[in-house]
């Protein structure tokens, strides 16, 4: 499912809303999550999962093509931990 398919499904189930509004809703949600992560905040959505950022130390990397050493700067990466309820749903239908 892509973002536009998600918007289409939501629009179908909410015929009283303009598709344009559904689009803004979806965009706003992910934009807020991204903004929070950019501030270093955590986003916790019970039952769904939690987004956070983790630090990565600077390291010596290698260009895989040439083998040349390159310095990789320290950085932060986004991280998602699946919520308990969603994790259980993923495994619900296959008889454990």
């Amino acid at each position: 499912m892509t973002k536009s398919e998600l918007i289409a499904r939501l629009a179908e189930k909410n015929p009283h809303l303009y598709q344009r509004d559904v689009e803004r809703i979806v965009t706003t949600i992910f934009d807020e999550i991204a903004g929070a992560l950019a501030r270093g905040d955590r986003v916790e959505l019970r039952g769904f999962g939690a987004f956070s950022v983790k630090g990565r130390d600077a390291r010596q990397g290698r260009n895989p093509r040439t083998g040349a050493q390159v310095a990789v700067q320290s950085k932060v990466v986004p991280f998602f931990k699946t919520g308990k309820q969603l994790r259980e749903r993923l495994n619900a239908d296959d008889g454990e």
Binding site: E32, I33, A36, R39, G40, D41, R42, V43, E44, L45, R46
Partner: peptide, 8 residues
Amino acid sequence: MSENTITR
């Protein structure tokens, strides 16, 4: 960095 938790 702050470290607030954003929720629903």
